Amino acid sequence: MDAGEMKPGEAAKSAKGSGGSEAAGDEAAAAGLEKVGDFGSNPGALSMYRYAPDGLPAKSPVVLVLHGCTQDAATYFEGAGWQQAADAGGFSVVAPQQEQANNVNKCFNWFQSGDVGREKGEALSVKQMVDRTVADLDADPSRVFITGLSAGGAMTASMLAAYPDVFKGGAVVAGLPHGCAASVAEAFTCMNPGVSKSAAEWGDLVREAAPDHSGARPAVSVWHGTGDTTVVPKNADESVKQWTDALGADQEADATEELQGGTTRSDYQNGDGAVVVRDYSVDGMPHGTPVKPDEGCGKAGEHFLDTICSTKHITADWGLGG
C-alpha cells in the first residue's frame, strides 16, 4: 500500500501512540530536519520536525508541510523541495509526522471528527507545533502558511477551516474539501467517486469549524491532476466551491492562465477584487505533488510528478518567493 492508494480503512486506531521510530528520525536528520520534542500536550500523538535556514532572522514566516499516506516528514520535505524553497525564501518549515500507532498507513486522520476539530486531536497537535515554532524562532505569527498532499491535503483544508486565525494561506494538493467525511466509509466515497454539495453547504462546513471567528480567512489554492484516480478531480471542483463560498467569491473564475506542464490556473476574486482562491489543474497528471527537478524543485519519484514546480508557485502566491 502506498501514498497513492491513500486507504484510510483499516487505518484508524482508537488509541493514540507516541513518538516516531528511530529510523524515521534518521531519515529526517538526513533530509535536514530536526526533531522537536515537548511542543505541547500533543493529543494527536504526532511527531514534530522542523527546518530553519542558517541565519534566519526574527519575524520570518513559517510554512507547515503535511505528508501523504505511507510517507513521512522527511519524504515530503525532500521530495517536494521545501528545503530549497525555505533557503531561497527565508522561512522555516514545520513538518508534522503521522505515526503508525495512530494510523497503520500513516495517513493523517482527516475523516475523524476528533482529529480535525478546533482544539482537538491531530489538529490541536499541529497548532501546538506552530506555537512552539513562533516562540522558539521569534517567527511572525501573522505569516504562517500550510500545505499538504493527499491525506495531508485534506488535513490542510481542515486546519484552514478550524484555525482561520492562525493561517494566512494554504494550498491543498490532491486533497479533499473540509468536512467531506466523518467515517472510514465516507472517506472512501469522498475519494472516489467524490461527493457533491452546493457551494453554500460546503462553505457552511468551514464556518461551523470556527463559529466564533469573524475576521479575515486565509486564501487557498487547490492543486489537482486531471488523471488522478485515487482522489478524483471532482474533489478539486468541490474544494473550489467550498473555499470560494467561504471567502466571498462567486463560482466563475475572474482570470484563467495556461502555465507550464499542461497546468491551467484559474483565479477567483472576492468583492474587493482580491484573489482568494486559485485552482491549479494539471492536465493528465495522476495522484501526487507536481515538482520540477531540473529547475531545482524537488525530486521526481512515486507521487512526486515531473510537471510543474508547485512549491515555487505556492510560495509565490504567499509572497515568499526567493
Rank of each mutant, 00 (worst) to 15 (best):
Asn102Met: 10
Val291Asp: 12
Ala249Ser: 13
Ala216Lys: 07
Gly40Cys: 08
Val276Met: 00
Ala216Met: 05
Ala151Ser: 15
Gln112Trp: 05
Pro193Glu: 09
Asp212Met: 02
Pro141Tyr: 12
Gly148Met: 07
Ala23Ile: 10
Ala274Arg: 12
Pro164Arg: 08
Trp318Glu: 01
Asp87Ala: 05
Asp228Ser: 08
Thr156Val: 12
Gly32Asn: 11
Cys107Tyr: 04
Thr264Leu: 12
Asn103Ala: 14
Leu149Arg: 05
Val166Ala: 02
Ala123Asn: 09
Asp165Ser: 06
Val240Tyr: 11
Lys35Gln: 15
Asp204Met: 00
Glu22Gly: 06
Gly44Val: 06
Ala52Phe: 03
Gly44Lys: 06
Ala23Arg: 13
Tyr280Phe: 15
Tyr76Arg: 00
Asn109Thr: 09
Val240Asp: 11
Ala316Ser: 15
Val134Arg: 01
Gln97Thr: 07
Ala80Met: 06
Pro290Met: 07
Glu252Val: 13
Ala274Ser: 13
Gly169Asn: 08
Glu258Tyr: 02
Tyr268Gln: 00
Lys106Gly: 00
Glu201Ala: 03
Ser21Gly: 15
Asp204Asn: 00
Val172Leu: 07
Val65Asp: 07
His67Asn: 06
Val275Lys: 09
Glu34Thr: 15
Ala88Gln: 14
Val172Gln: 05
Ala162Leu: 00
Asn103Pro: 01
Phe91Ile: 10
Thr256Ala: 14
Phe108Trp: 13
Lys16Trp: 09
Val275Ile: 14
Lys35Cys: 07
Ser281Asp: 04
His224Met: 04
Glu27Asp: 14
His67Glu: 05
Ala171Ser: 15
Ser125Trp: 04
Cys297Lys: 03
Ala45Cys: 10
Thr263Phe: 01
Gly4Ile: 13
Gln98Ile: 00
Glu27Phe: 10
Asp165Leu: 09
Ala29Leu: 12
Glu119Val: 03
Gly273Ala: 08
Ala31Tyr: 11
Val220Arg: 11
Gln71Ile: 01
Thr256Gly: 10
Val206Met: 01
Asn42Trp: 05
Ala52Trp: 04
Gln83Glu: 14
Asn109Gln: 11
Trp318Leu: 06
Asp279Ala: 10
Ser150Lys: 05
Glu22Ile: 10
Gly20Thr: 14
Val231Ala: 01
Leu64Ile: 00
Thr289Met: 14
Asp138Tyr: 02
Ala209Lys: 01
Ser113Glu: 13
Leu64Asp: 02
Arg118Thr: 03
Ser266Pro: 06
Val126Leu: 10
Trp243Tyr: 10
Cys309Trp: 07
Gly55Glu: 08
Glu302Val: 12
Arg217Ile: 03
Gly225Met: 07
Pro43Thr: 11
Thr70Ala: 12
Glu201Cys: 02
Trp82Tyr: 13
Asp140Ile: 01
Arg278Gly: 05
Phe145His: 12
Leu247Lys: 04
Met6Lys: 02
Thr156Cys: 13
Val277Cys: 11
Val144Gln: 00
Ala209His: 01
Leu176Gln: 13
Phe111Val: 08
Glu238Val: 04
Val36Asp: 01
Asp250Trp: 06
Val277Tyr: 10
Ser41Trp: 02
Leu66Val: 03
Leu149Ala: 07
Val276Gln: 00
Glu22Cys: 03
Asp2Val: 04
Glu122Gln: 15
Ala58Glu: 15
Val195Tyr: 03
Ser158Ile: 00
Gly271Asn: 12
Asp272Glu: 15
Tyr280Asn: 05
Arg265Glu: 14
Asp165Phe: 03
